[in-house]
Design a protein around this nucleic acid. Structure first.
Ligand code: FES
Ligand code: FES
Lengths: 153, 153
DNA sequence: TTAATTCCTACTAAATTAGTAGTATATTTG
DNA sequence: CAAATATACTACTAATTTAGTAGGAATTAA
């Protein structure tokens, strides 16, 4: 499971991505309110994302956060990794959170590891080709499908 | 990430699967030693697996645990679920550990959920077609690849 | 100068996971 | 039957991780 932190980070970045056209700083409190994220927690998360070079900030009155990259360049896999979420199901197959399996005789020959490796590859394949922009696009498509209310087919 | 508990469960079941030919009860302490699992913890895990009808036990001297199904019928996805590990990355896409996403306006239209759903499907596809027997088979193949020592060519 | 905002360190609280203790109950074997 | 050897089961404790908060320093606009 992804941590709340990771989910909040993605949501916040999506909020910024939506306003990317003029990309002027957006206040923490504004994002927090829109996305239903505890204000102070979000503050810490955005700070961390800035340290990772994915968003920028402006201090003082009229300050806030903005994206440093185009929404098409920010991949889900990256956001997940940066906010501490390993994607792999076992540490022995994780690229970024690798730890050897002490009980297993040999990683080379471990059948379980071999399966979990396949799962990781399948997951990464999807997550690393999906950008913030892609998610917004999906949202658009879904909302068309789900409520074709006043549109004349 | 899978819990230790889940990993231990899989390992223990693989131990039993290896001896499935005569399928006579194997002692907890024997499994624990072979797989490097804390004895008492394993006891609790096997007990739970029994309650879920995946293994059987015999009490008293000469007692122990044995598989109730053929190793080909026990799927990784099942073991993971039974031992408490959700496979999905978010509760809103989990079949067995579903919880609604409070901050999201609508699950129907949530772009993030839509991607995570794809990831879950890809993972389940692999995990639900891989049995204990399959894992043992992989192990066999891997060990042939990795040490073609005394084999001619 | 004041108000509004991010920056940053250091916590606290809650939840989850990992593991243990100890006793009851069942079974084999002599 | 009695002793030895298992599992069954309940109820903890300890360790780790995750979620969230407090509060003041630094920065900027007006
Ligand atoms: S090496 Fe990691 S599960 Fe065996
Ligand atoms: S509904 Fe679960 S992430 Fe949006």
């Amino acid at each position: 499971m992804l941590q709340k932190k990771t989910k909040y980070a993605i949501k916040a970045l999506l909020s910024l991505a939506k306003e990317y056209k003029d990309n002027k700083p957006m206040k923490i409190s504004e994002i927090a309110e829109k996305e239903g994220i505890p204000r102070k927690f979000l503050e810490a998360i955005l700070l961390e994302l800035r340290h990772h070079g994915i968003v920028g900030s402006k201090m003082g009155a009229t300050g806030g956060y903005y994206l440093l990259k185009h929404p098409e360049e920010i991949m889900l896999s990256n956001v997940i990794r940066l906010t501490g979420g390993p994607i792999a199901l076992l540490p022995c197959v994780s690229l970024n959170f690798y730890e050897p399996c002490v009980e297993c005789v040999s990683e080379e020959v471990c059948g379980l590891r071999n399966v979990i490796l396949e799962v990781r590859e399948a997951s990464i394949k999807i997550l690393s080709k999906t950008s913030l922009a892609d998610i917004l696009l999906r949202e658009l498509k879904l909302s068309k499908k789900v409520k074709p209310l006043k549109t004349k087919r």
